[in-house]
Design a protein around this nucleic acid. Structure first.
Length: 370
DNA sequence: AAATCGGGGCA
DNA sequence: TGCCCAGATTT
């Protein structure tokens, strides 16, 4: 069998399988380019099951590019809360505003224009052009690299950017004429449902007969991928600052900077200490957090009472947070600081929180109610 | 090329 | 625990 016949077999069988087995997903109910676009941004590094409820809420609130363009950023972030990688939400809104202004609200269908939109890289551009506009462009994500690495027994390291380029040209050649939309989705659907990372279900695979990786008994060792670095643990003290007087029942929180990790989200004030040993020295934590807040003009009396510990795991970082009880000494001055605010159980939901602080504060407000 | 950027699901 | 997920952007 020639390589040409091999490729044709793959595409034909895969398409047939997909048309029978495709999942009914919210963004598959139309070819509305805006729907496809939003779904693809949400799906970056995020599982389908996680995205579904977010997608539905998002489309309910921002049904068209115009609605999204006109919304306050805080509203958009609120609908992204808990989904992670928040720059996706900000980039999406910036890009939608450009689409409304430059293209009258119509998602562009040419490669150059789509690719230049904020947050739209090689994969997402290919996904929009192929799924929404049925153009013969590859859309190579982790699924596609895994499936094709196995089927063609490719041994290049898929962690390297150069490998994706090569696989894109292979994926391009595999697209049957006029079938880009279904074929690209079929490739990803196979990776998600059958050709899974750990133990692929080769018995249920529509192309198992000619899968080179399988024929060589190497499906479990492919694709080759260099290991990621372990996240670095860091240690922090946070302050749970309870208000009194007119701020009774409230907690002092602050907004993170405009850029970087968890940009513009709200948090308990906290500081980093050197290492795990310092994390055990409560007197040190009390002193350092008082000093740091004082720098911000916030006068606080901390204690050595540990309200609780929390851990937050990022891709490259592990926050270990020890929460100390504290009280504000000058409550009126505090409210003048724009990045600091008193928040009570009522206002809590109108702020956007990283999960770790959402959990801590939810727990606090439940406890203090009793 | 390497680092940054969330959060969760699963063996 | 480790690995991965419909990746993009910055350094």
């Amino acid at each position: 069998m020639s390589m040409e016949e091999n490729k044709q077999y793959f595409s034909t069988q895969l398409l047939r399988w997909y048309r029978k087995e495709r999942r009914d997903l919210p963004w598959r109910r139309s070819r509305n380019p805006y729907h496809i676009w939003v779904s693809e941004i949400m799906l970056q590094q995020t599982r389908v099951d996680t995205v579904i409820p977010y997608f539905n809420r998002f489309m309910d609130r921002f049904p068209t590019p115009q609605h999204l363009a006109e919304a306050p950023e805080e509203d958009v972030l609120k609908h992204w809360e808990g989904l992670g990688y928040y720059s996706r939400a900000r980039n999406l809104q910036a890009a939608v505003r450009e689409v409304v202004e430059q293209y009258g609200g119509v998602v562009p269908s040419n490669k150059k224009a789509v690719s230049s939109l904020k947050g739209v890289g090689p994969y997402t551009a290919g996904a929009i052009l192929s799924i929404a506009y049925n153009q013969s462009e590859p859309a190579v994500d982790g699924n596609v690299m895994r499936v094709l690495s196995r089927y063609f027994c490719l041994e290049e390291d898929i962690a390297k950017p150069a490998t994706r380029i090569g696989i894109e040209s292979i994926a391009q050649e595999l697209i049957p004429d006029g079938e880009a939309a279904d074929f690209n989705q079929a490739l990803m659907e196979l990776g998600a449902m059958v050709c899974t990372p750990k133990s692929p279900s080769c018995l249920e695979c529509p192309v198992t007969q000619l899968c080179l990786g399988r024929l060589e008994g190497r499906e479990r060792e492919l694709p080759v991928k260099t290991k990621a670095k372990k996240p670095k643990p860091v240690f922090r003290f946070a302050a749970l600052i309870e208000g009194s007087g007119q701020h009774a029942g409230k907690v002092l929180v602050r907004q993170r900077p405009d850029t970087g990790l968890l940009a513009r989200m709200w948090e308990l004030p906290h500081i980093e200490v050197l290492d795990a040993a310092a994390w055990d020295m409560l007197a040190l934590g009390k002193q350092e957090i008082e000093a740091a807040l004082s720098e911000d003009g916030v006068k606080v009396k901390a204690t050595e009472h540990v309200v609780g510990d929390a851990q937050h795991i990022f891709t490259h970082l592990i926050w270990n947070i020890r929460v100390l009880a504290a009280v504000a000494l000058d409550e009126e001055y505090v409210t003048d600081r724009t990045s600091y605010k008193w928040v009570g159980a009522e206002e809590f939901e109108s702020f956007v929180w990283p999960n770790v602080f959402r959990k801590l504060l939810t727990e606090y407000f439940i406890q203090s109610r009793n």
